[in-house]
């Protein structure tokens, strides 16, 4: 039987190592494809613009004449068109004693719950 040729085993070992390192690099690249997707999905899912818009419209209109009607408008339309439960109450300034307006705002769209106590400047 011929003698087994065991030359160049070092080179073969290196070949194996490089092959396996390529394999793990490929795994990492594969994983990187979903990073942008999950980020964008979570950004879309979080109602950042909705909450900002809601808080903005409530706090910039505290001195309107018919806040009761506007309050019902926002509550009903939020539920029908935005699938969000919105409740808020306003406290008007009491001039000699307290010059601030206050708003207590509650928002819940089933995924995100948000609560804010707002005080005017």
């Amino acid at each position: 039987m011929a003698r087994l040729n065991d030359d160049a085993q070092w080179i073969i070992l290196m070949g194996f190592l490089i092959s396996f390192s390529f394999f793990f690099l490929a795994l990492i690249i594969n994983q990187s494809t979903v990073v942008g997707q999950t980020t964008a999905e979570s950004v879309i899912e979080f109602p950042k613009n909705d909450i900002r818009d809601l808080v903005g419209v409530i706090t910039t209109n505290t001195s309107r004449s018919n806040t009761t009607v506007v309050n019902s408008d926002i509550t009903v339309i939020s539920l029908h068109r935005k699938n969000a439960v919105v409740r808020y109450s306003l406290i008007q300034p009491n001039p000699p004693v307290d010059l601030h307006s206050y708003a207590s705002i509650h928002y819940n769209n089933g995924v995100t719950t948000y609560y804010e106590n707002w005080t005017s400047l």
Partner: peptide
């Protein structure tokens, strides 16, 4: 070893030329 290297090379080349993040990922949304 040679086979592994060739497969890995082919895999890397193919995945490098394709778009990493698919279009249906809500980023543009």
């Amino acid at each position: 070893a040679a086979g592994l290297i060739m497969i890995m090379t082919a895999y890397l080349v193919v995945s490098a030329t394709s778009v990493y993040t698919a279009g249906d990922t809500h980023i543009s949304d």
